[in-house]
Simulated scan of single mutants.
Amino acid sequence: MDALTLRPVRPAVSADDAELAELDRSTWSTLHAVLPKPAPPYEPFFDEGHPPEGILVAEAAPGTAGGAPRIAGYIRLVPPTPLASNAHVRQIRGLAVATWARGAGVGRTLLRGAFAEARSQGVNRITLRVLAHNDPARALYVSEGFAVEGVLPGEFFLNGRYVDDVLMGRSLGPA
């Protein structure tokens, strides 16, 4: 793999829809997905419940080839509920890294970008859910300060077996 030049994480814009939709489809895996594999006709990435405002993207360009930057990954960071009493929390509801960009720190860059964005919104806590068998994601989350806060045993039945849903969270410190 060529070295990648990562750009700073940025908010998604409507024009990212097609590229993000393709990234989402190309990274679908039973390692993290609880919904069936997408099939045509494909839905847009952005819709009323998933606007660009809740997505941060990482762009990268090949370091040696001088190619144009393209989206290497995204993270969806949203309020977990509409309740005012829960407004100090954001939840990660999706993180994907393009196959061609894996191993270059894109996931870590997206997490850290999400931490910065959450802090700028006055948030002091981030939570997420991850499937128990997704060891790479769990290791990344732990290395970035997340701790297991609960486990829903056998919450999903995937590929003929029951899979635990792991709830993780971390503090961002005072807002």
Rank of each mutant, 00 (worst) to 15 (best):
G73C: 02
R112H: 15
P41I: 08
G94L: 04
V34F: 05
G173W: 08
Y42M: 07
L4C: 08
H32D: 13
P136C: 05
Y162V: 00
P41G: 10
D164T: 00
T5F: 11
I126K: 00
A104H: 15
T5N: 15
S14L: 14
T109K: 07
N134L: 04
R93N: 13
G150T: 05
E59G: 03
L140S: 03
A104G: 03
P11Q: 14
G54T: 12
N134S: 10
L83V: 11
T109Q: 13
L31P: 03
H88G: 07
G154H: 10
P69F: 01
Y74D: 03
P41N: 11
A116I: 03
G160I: 02
G66V: 12
E48P: 05
A61Y: 09
A21I: 02
R138V: 08
A98D: 10
A147D: 12
P174F: 06
R119D: 11
N159L: 06
L31S: 11
P153R: 05
D17T: 05
N159W: 01
R112E: 14
N134R: 03
Y42L: 10
Y162L: 05
P80G: 07
L140M: 06
R70P: 08
P36D: 12
G150D: 07
S14D: 15
L77R: 03
M1R: 15
V163E: 04
G160E: 05
L140K: 02
D16M: 04
P51R: 08
H133A: 01
R108H: 12
I75T: 08
S171R: 05
E149C: 07
P44S: 13
R170H: 04
A175H: 14
R93A: 13
E48N: 11
A147M: 10
E155H: 14
E48Q: 12
S143L: 05
F157L: 14
A68C: 10
G105F: 06
P153D: 03
L131N: 00
G67H: 13
T81V: 10
L110A: 03
D165A: 03
E149V: 04
G49N: 13
V123T: 15
R119N: 11
Y42T: 07
D135S: 10
S85C: 09
P80A: 05
A132D: 10
T5S: 15
L128H: 00
L128A: 00
A116Y: 01
L83Q: 12
R119V: 12
Y74I: 03
T99G: 15
A61S: 15
V148L: 04
P62F: 07
I126W: 00
R112W: 11
P11I: 02
A98Q: 02
A61W: 07
L77K: 02
S29E: 09
T5D: 15
G107K: 00
D164A: 00
L172W: 01
V9F: 04
R25E: 09
L158D: 03
N159K: 11
L83A: 12
P136D: 08
T30H: 12
L56E: 02
A147F: 02
G94P: 09
S85K: 13
A21G: 13
I55T: 14
S14F: 10
F45S: 01
I55L: 07
L23V: 06
G94N: 09
K37C: 12
T109D: 03
N159Q: 13
E53Y: 06
E149K: 02
Q121V: 11
T64C: 12
V34S: 09
G113D: 09
R76S: 14
Y42G: 06
V13N: 07
A137Q: 05
A147L: 11
M1H: 15
N124I: 02
R119Y: 06
R7M: 14
F46I: 03
